Simulated assay, not measured.
Amino acid sequence: MDPKTSHADRVLEATRSASAAARSQIAASWHRSVQKHGLDPNNRRAPDKIEHAALRERLEVYEKFMMVAAPRLDALYLLVGQSGCAVLMTDTEGVILDQRMSDADTPAFESWGLSAGANWSEEREGTNGIGTCLTERRRVIIHQDEHFHARNTGMSCIDAPIFDENGQIVAALDVSSARADQTEAFNRLIGAQVAQTARAIEEANFRAAFSAARIIVAESSEADSATLLAVDSHDLVIGATREARRAFGLAGTGPLAARPAADILGQEDGPTGFQRAERAAVVRALARADGNVSQAARQLGVGRATLYRRMKRLGLHET
Rank of each mutant, 00 (worst) to 15 (best):
R44S: 10
D40Q: 02
G84I: 14
P41Y: 11
K64A: 08
V80T: 07
L88V: 05
D40M: 09
L39P: 03
R44T: 14
E60F: 12
R45L: 06
R58S: 02
E63H: 15
V87G: 11
S33G: 05
G81A: 07
R32C: 01
K49W: 00
E63V: 01
V34S: 01
L39R: 03
L78K: 11
N42V: 10
A69T: 03
L59S: 07
L59H: 07
G84E: 01
L73T: 04
H37P: 05
L88E: 11
E57T: 00
S83I: 00
L79A: 13
C85E: 14
G38Y: 10
L55A: 00
L76H: 02
G81D: 09
R56Y: 05
L39Y: 09
A69F: 01
A86V: 13
G38C: 07
M67S: 14
A53Q: 06
A54C: 08
V80N: 08
M67N: 09
Q82K: 12
Q35D: 05
K64T: 07
G81M: 09
L76K: 00
D40Y: 10
D40A: 03
C85W: 01
L76V: 09
D74T: 11
H37M: 06
V68D: 03
E51D: 06
A54T: 09
N43K: 15
Y62K: 05
F65H: 14
Y62D: 05
P41S: 03
A69L: 11
V68Y: 08
S83H: 13
H37Q: 02
S83M: 10
E60K: 03
K64D: 12
V61R: 14
K36N: 15
R44N: 07
Y77M: 09
R44L: 05
M66N: 09
G84C: 03
E60A: 14
E60P: 03
A70K: 10
L39F: 01
E51L: 08
E51P: 04
K64F: 08
R44W: 06
V68F: 11
Q35M: 13
Y62N: 14
A70R: 10
S33T: 01
L78C: 08
L78Y: 04
V80K: 14
Q82H: 05
V34I: 09
A54M: 12
R72G: 12
C85K: 04
G84L: 03
R44P: 15
V80A: 12
H37T: 07
Q82I: 02
M66F: 09
A75D: 07
V80H: 11
R56L: 13
D74G: 11
L88C: 08
Q35V: 09
A69I: 12
H37D: 11
N43L: 06
A53N: 05
L76C: 12
M66P: 10
I50S: 07
M66D: 05
L79C: 15
R32M: 01
P41H: 02
P41Q: 14
R44K: 03
P47A: 10
A53I: 10
E57C: 02
R45V: 00
A53L: 05
A46K: 10
R58L: 13
K36Y: 00
R44Q: 08
F65C: 09
Y77Q: 13
A69K: 00
S83R: 07
A69E: 03
E57R: 09
D48A: 04
A86N: 07
L78N: 12
K36E: 11
H52W: 06
V61L: 06
D40N: 12
Q35S: 13
